[in-house]
């Protein structure tokens, strides 16, 4: 973990209100694990006040580049959209506990909903290095939400899409595709990141099929490093409220409650 000022290397608009930001830090990319995140504070202004957490979308360990895939939803992300190459931002990271990467020569199913796709690219790239076959299922509200899917082509063997308005892929929720995919592909592990109801459904299906499942959670954060004790979720097996920034953001699905 380090606290550094980094200059924006590149920013690409992917779709309406969606961007991919390129930053460079050889020391961060060297140690970053799939599923980990960084926090970004744009300037010294007091509104927005706190740094915001963003997953590491992908890393290039040769150049030291790493990517953030984000959506404009509020104060900080709106200002991020205006960043230009050379602008300086403050980054803390890498933070948190990433995905379990023990799987080798096997089959993994990755399920992303909306911007929950963000950490799955890094995950797919790491799983591919271990000679795994990767099946991807992505859901979004409409086709605008699926404009970044090309980034999964190299690492994934198959990509299935669903949109709620039917503008691309199957019309409906991505979870409706899962029973069939699980039957055909027989994954040894399932990873998911996205809206809580989606992850809850994935957890339920994985449990039915007795497939280990990891979920990546989001909460509001203040410190990002386990100090403020503000970023809690609910545990299924302990009285203590786990902290998403240090115990997560990735958890085994059966460890945490996903009912909101």
């Amino acid at each position: 973990m380090e606290l550094v000022n980094l200059r924006v290397k590149k920013q690409i608009k992917i779709a309406e209100d969606q961007f991919v930001l390129t930053l460079n830090s050889p020391s961060i990319t060297k140690v970053a694990q799939a599923g980990q995140f960084i926090t970004i504070k744009l300037n010294k202004n007091y509104d927005p006040l706190l740094p915001r957490p963003f997953s590491i979308h992908s890393v290039d360990r040769e150049t030291g580049d790493f990517l953030i895939y984000y959506q404009v939803v509020g104060k900080t992300s709106k200002l991020m959209a205006e960043l230009e190459p050379g602008d300086e931002i403050t980054v803390l990271g890498p933070l948190g506990k990433g995905f379990n990467l023990e799987l080798e020569n096997s089959r993994a199913l990755l399920i992303g909903g909306g911007l929950g796709q963000a950490p799955l690219r890094f995950l797919a790239e790491e799983l591919q290095k271990k000679n795994n076959q990767i099946y991807m299922a992505i859901g979004a509200r409409d086709q605008e939400g699926l404009k970044n899917i090309l980034c999964f082509e190299e690492s994934c063997q198959e990509i299935n899409l669903a949109t709620q308005d039917g503008s691309l892929g199957k019309e409906g929720l991505v979870t409706e595709l899962l029973p069939q995919i699980i039957r055909d592909f027989n994954p040894k592990i399932i990873y998911t990141c996205g809206p809580l109801p989606m992850m809850a459904k994935v957890k339920e299906l994985a449990a039915q099929e007795k497939i280990p499942c990891q979920v990546s959670l989001e909460t509001t954060m203040a410190c990002g490093i386990g100090v403020c004790l503000g970023c809690t979720c609910e545990s299924t097996n302990s009285e203590i409220y786990p902290k998403v920034c240090t115990h997560g953001p990735v958890f085994w699905a059966q460890e945490v409650k996903l009912d909101g």
Binding site: D47, G230, C231
Partner: peptide, 10 residues
Amino acid sequence: KRIFETPAGL
């Protein structure tokens, strides 16, 4: 929920 940001405050 334990934390929430408001303008210049927490």
